[in-house]
């Protein structure tokens, strides 16, 4: 075990030579800095491409019709701006083949059974519904909690989950709730997985926390959202 090795290395007593020590440490540090920077610079474009692909894949899976997307930011006062802005909620606007707004995707998270579950979900203002979720990170028990993304019946909950607003458009008309397996009777309810109620509820909570803020904030801003599509097309050669 580790201790054997460390003990061997513990008590070196050759003559003291500070200059040599500093020289060799400087040499090593320079060398290692050089190597790391080289690799980081070399891999940077590949990594950002990988990350972009991962984000794109997730967005397209929660907004089924989307073929292009734009990052946008939503601040506290429901003002939407292009690109990422620190301190604002990051949204992804997805557009279909004709450049029409196909939906908006954003991230949310809630504590699941083992650890926090992070999801991306798509919201379509046209149908006032959630169009899909994708679990980005979860440590739920394989075979039980992981049914939140492997169980087709559970995933089907989110093909058109109702998030209509109330009359004053200030909040959701019906909060998203997770009900016992087989008890789903309204389009805003999530039919839990039997045996994985905690994980199912976590998804419900994650959606409710985020949607109850984002959906009212976006209400009446479809034209604004649509405008980001035009900007994409203008940029493209």
């Amino acid at each position: 075990m580790s201790e054997k090795i460390i003990h061997l290395t513990e008590h070196p007593t050759p003559p003291f030579n500070s200059a040599a020590m500093i020289r060799s440490l400087t040499l090593i540090a320079t060398l290692s800095g050089l190597l790391v920077v080289l690799v980081v610079e070399w891999t940077r474009p590949m990594i950002s491409e990988n990350q972009r692909l991962a984000v794109e894949h997730a967005i397209f899976s929660v907004i089924p019709e989307a073929v292009s997307w734009q990052p946008i930011s939503l601040d506290e006062n429901a003002v939407i701006s292009a690109g990422k802005v620190a301190g604002s909620t990051l949204l992804y606007a997805g557009f279909n083949a004709t450049g029409e707004l196909a939906g908006v995707a954003t991230e949310s998270s809630a504590q699941g059974y083992a650890d926090a579950i992070r999801i991306l979900y798509g919201y379509n203002p046209a149908c006032d519904c959630i169009t899909g979720i994708k679990v980005l990170k979860s440590a739920e028990t394989p075979g039980l909690g992981d049914k939140i993304f492997t169980d087709a019946a559970f995933v089907a909950n989110f093909n058109a989950l109702d998030v209509r607003l109330n009359e004053s458009a200030s909040a959701l008309a019906n909060p998203i709730t997770t009900v016992m397996h087989g008890k789903k009777s309204h389009p805003w309810e999530i039919d839990a997985i039997s045996g994985a109620t905690i994980s199912s509820r976590a998804i419900g909570r994650a959606l409710q926390t985020s949607a109850s803020k984002v959906v009212p904030a976006l209400s009446g801003q479809r034209d604004k959202l649509q405008s980001f599509s035009a900007s994409t097309r203008a940029e493209q050669p």
Partner: peptide, 8 residues
């Protein structure tokens, strides 16, 4: 202990 954090 895993369920301790969830549930709520």
């Amino acid at each position: 202990f895993a369920g301790m954090g969830g549930g709520g």
